[in-house]
C-alpha cells in the first residue's frame, strides 16, 4: 500500500501507535494544534436537551457536581 505524500512528515518515533491510528491526533500534530480538544458537539447538545427535558436530573447534576477548588481560583493579592 502506497503512503500518501504529506507536507509534514510524521515520525513514528514521536507519535505512539494509538496516536498514529487516530486521525484527529494526526491532524492536530500536522497543524500544530496541540491544544485543540475533540468535542462531540451533537452528543453535548443531546445531553443539554436531556437536562432541559427532566428538571430533576438537572437539579441532581447541580447538587452532585464536584465542589470548585477555591485554591485554584484565588484572587491575586495586590
Amino acid at each position: 500500500m502506497a503512503a500518501l505524500p504529506t507536507a509534514v512528515q510524521i515520525s513514528a518515533d514521536i507519535l505512539s501507535r494509538r496516536q498514529r491510528a487516530d486521525d484527529i491526533a494526526r491532524l492536530k500534530s500536522m497543524m500544530e494544534l496541540h491544544a485543540l480538544e475533540y468535542v462531540d458537539v451533537s452528543a453535548h447538545m443531546e445531553l443539554l436537551q436531556a437536562f432541559e427535558r427532566w428538571p430533576l436530573l438537572a437539579y441532581l447534576e447541580a447538587q452532585y457536581q464536584l465542589p470548585v477548588d477555591l485554591q485554584k481560583h484565588k484572587e491575586p493579592s495586590p
Binding site: L47, A50, R53, L57, E61
Partner: peptide
Amino acid sequence: SQLQRDLVLIWQH
C-alpha cells in the same frame, strides 16, 4: 422510552 434513553446517555457521559 425518551427518559430511559436520556438517563443512559447521562450515565454513559
